[in-house]
Every structure is written in structure tokens, then in C-alpha cells.
Design a protein around this nucleic acid. Structure first.
Ligand code: MN
Ligand code: MN
Ligand code: MN
Ligand code: MN
Lengths: 219, 219
DNA sequence: ACAAATTTTTAGCTTTGCCTAAATTATTAT
DNA sequence: ATAATAATTTAGGCAAAGCTAAAAATTTGT
């Protein structure tokens, strides 16, 4: 598989996660910053190789083979992200672009040894699950902070938006994975929240809350 | 720079090391397993970018810019090789092909952090020197085992041929970097040597001796 | 139901990096 | 010195992966 084919497969995988229907040509083009006509060309090629199901004008979805392929790439991307943070002291906002390159390195042995070096991590630095050798992973039971009710207590376990600008914002405001969060108040007017995080009280916009995942504490 | 451009630059660098004259089109083509006409095409492009000096039919050599570029790629290649051996327990015959991929990853910060993680190694697993951040490195004072006289004592510090088949041969015969070697006899007839290595006596062909570097012991 | 708007595909073109075959230049041998 | 040989370059083409513009199919709004 070429690098470009791998990038398309990965994009279709990510778009296919939310919303269970077939993925649209335009959605792929937008996420990949390319043109719809280019997407159509590539989809045909992927279809030839039995990586996607495709009928003209009907959108596209991954086959089982395509899904396995995607999981392999996602596994590599996330393991390299862990490596960059754990072994090379990168911060979570610097790693995505480098992992975009590293995810295309071809060597099963390499990735399995890396997995071992990192002690078989289950989640990447943004809280996303890492598929194992066989493509299996458990999606963590988590909710967007914007969708829980007043009084909810939980721990911050992930981000939905993992752009550098959002991650840097979280750093500046001392919001990090693993922190305890309690929702104290929800403002009717603009949906902003008053929360306590790590013992500190702060006000965050709906926008922020809708990009933070928490795991609600068992009581 | 594209991956292909980087590979050409690196090849010209390696060919330029031995023999100080300009590198020939055919030599490049052979080493890269491509056709001379393709080489000519690429050389023109590299010449446009001031990475090589080129006059039709006169061969090619790296400019200062080209040399710096090559040193950067070689640095990455060799640091990744050290990583694979030191951190992921690969053997020295498995690492070259993976490093061929990793050497093209673009991130200065990544490579400097890797350098630090590995504690700034000076040589790669095959005994080749690793250029530092600025492209500086010291060529170790070493000689081919086939070119020293009877009675010479030294330590094995590198291999000339680093193909997997040669390296595996060395493993099978318990020849490794760091081992003490003494030349006991040289057979006139076929140039084979009787040596002691790590206290053991063995007979090695001229072919083998001409691919092993030793550093002669100070006396 | 049908026109308008949107989405998707097709057609044709570009660049990169490679190829083969033919032409050119340099080198070697007589 | 010239002919043969070898090395190198040029010419012309191909496949991958992108693009723009135009055509076709689908979806939406009235
Ligand atoms: Mn990422
Ligand atoms: Mn991530
Ligand atoms: Mn190597
Ligand atoms: Mn090496």
C-alpha cells in the first residue's frame, strides 16, 4: 500500500466512526484537504483492492480488510505518539504531525517491539484507545463534559479536538488528563460551565466542554 | 526535499567518500538499482537546487549544501539504527532496511531528542561514525584486517560490508565489534588469515578479512 | 412534481519519478 | 589515428496522485 492509500483508508475509518452510514466524498476531501475529484479517483482504486465498498454516488465504507488495515495504521500512529511523549518528552500538542509520518513506517516487528518498550499502553496521550496486535481495543466508557448534568463528578480521560491550539489552551489553564472534575453549575444563557478541576474552580465555555471527555466516577 | 532526492544525495555522498573524484552516473544507477537515464534526470534537478555540481558527461559531486544535507540524512539513519539495537533489541543485520525508512522522517526536534535518549552515541551498530547536530564527526583510525601484517593486534571496530548475509555470517562465527583480534598467519596462496579472536583461533578467507575493520592496539 | 441547489463523477491536464530506445560523447584498443 | 566499445544523455512514454472545468446524478425546497 502506498502512503496515500493508507491516508485515505485512515480518513474513511475516522469518518465512519461517528455516524454509521457510508462516508461522503466531500467529507473525505475536506478532511484530507484535497478535491472531491481526487477522492473519487482514489476510491475506485481502493475499491479494486477490496479495501472499501463503493457504488457510484452512494458513498463509501470500509470492508473488513479495510477496517483491519485502518486499525493497523491507527495502532502505529498512537503507539508512536506514546513513544514521543513517554520516551522523548514531547508535549501532547507536538506529536500528531510527527506521528502522521511515523505511522507509515513498514515493519511489524518494529511496532510490536515498540509496543513492548512502552509496556503495552492502552491509550494514547490524547486519551484515544490503542488497538492491539489483532486490531482489538475497548472503547472507554466516557461522556462529553457538555452532556452531563449538574453535580456530575468524574475524571478527565480524553479530548475530542486534538488540535495543537486546543491542547495548548488546556495546558495554559491547567487542564490535563487524569484530573478530577465536578460540574458545579451550568449557565442556561450560553451553556458555559462552572467546574472544579483539581480542587480549582473555573468557568469554561460550552465549546471547551464539548471537546473534553470525562469518565464518570462510580459511586 | 522529496524522499527520492534524499536517497540520491545520500548515495552520491557514500560513493564520493572512497575515491575523491566525481561520481559516475552508472555507479549511482547501480547502487540505487535504477537506470542511468533516471539518474541523469534527477541529477539535473539536484543541480538546479544547488545540491550537486554537474557538467554533462563529467560526473557529479556534492556542493557544501549537498554535503550538509547528506550528513543530516546519514545522522538520522545511524541514530535510528542505534535506537533499534539499543532500545528495541534488534540485531545488527535487521536494522538497515528499517532505518532506510526512518531516515526520511522530518523533525529536527525528534532527531535531537533521540540523540539525547541514546546518550549521544558516536558510532552506529556497524561501527560507522554518527555526525553530530552540526554534521561534524571524527573518522576513527582503523584498517582493514586484510591490509595489516602478521603479528598485528587490535580490536574489531567495524564492518565494510554491512549486508545481512555477511553480518549473520559473523554472528554464526562469533565475530563481533569489540573483540580482540591478532593476526597469527597469512596464507600466501589465497590470502586467507589465521587469527585469534576473543581467545579462539580460526581461519578466515581474504574476502572476510577485507570487510572487517580493526583498530590497532597502541603498544 | 419539478426546478434549483448540491454532490459526485468524468474528462483532460500537470508533475514526479521512473522506463526503453536512440543519439551523443568519451574512452580504449588496434 | 581511427575504429570499436562504453558511458552518458536525450527523446518520448507511462503510472501515481493531484488539479480544474464540465457533465451527470442526487437531494432539497416550493
Ligand atoms: Mn494524532
Ligand atoms: Mn492521538
Ligand atoms: Mn544502514
Ligand atoms: Mn549502519
Amino acid at each position: 500500500m502506498t502512503r496515500s492509500e493508507e491516508n485515505y483508508i485512515k480518513t474513511i475509518f475516522h469518518l465512519g466512526r461517528q455516524g454509521m452510514e457510508a462516508v461522503s466524498t466531500n467529507a473525505i476531501a475536506e478532511l484530507m484537504e484535497t478535491k472531491p475529484s481526487s477522492v473519487t479517483d482514489m476510491i475506485k482504486k481502493l475499491s479494486e483492492k477490496d479495501l472499501v465498498n463503493y457504488k457510484r454516488y452512494q458513498g463509501v465504507s470500509l470492508t473488513d480488510l479495510g477496517t483491519q488495515t485502518a486499525l493497523g495504521i491507527v495502532r502505529k500512529h498512537r503507539l508512536w505518539e506514546v513513544f514521543l511523549v513517554e520516551k522523548l518528552d514531547f508535549s501532547w500538542d507536538e506529536i500528531h504531525d510527527i506521528a502522521e509520518q511515523l505511522e507509515h513506517i513498514k515493519s511489524d516487528k518494529l511496532i510490536d517491539r515498540l509496543d513492548k518498550l512502552l509496556d503495552y499502553p492502552k491509550f494514547d496521550p490524547h486519551g484515544d484507545p490503542i488497538p492491539d496486535k489483532n486490531g482489538d481495543f475497548k472503547e472507554r466508557d466516557r461522556k462529553l463534559l457538555s452532556e452531563v448534568e449538574i453535580g456530575t463528578k468524574g475524571v478527565c480521560v480524553g479530548v475530542k479536538d486534538s488540535s495543537a491550539s486546543f491542547l495548548k489552551f488546556l495546558d495554559r489553564n491547567h487542564i490535563a488528563l487524569g484530573h478530577q472534575i465536578e460540574v458545579l453549575e451550568i449557565e442556561e444563557f450560553d451553556g458555559s460551565l462552572n467546574i472544579s478541576i483539581n480542587q480549582n474552580n473555573m468557568q469554561i465555555s460550552h465549546q471547551i466542554a464539548s471537546n473534553l471527555y470525562i469518565k464518570i466516577n462510580e459511586q
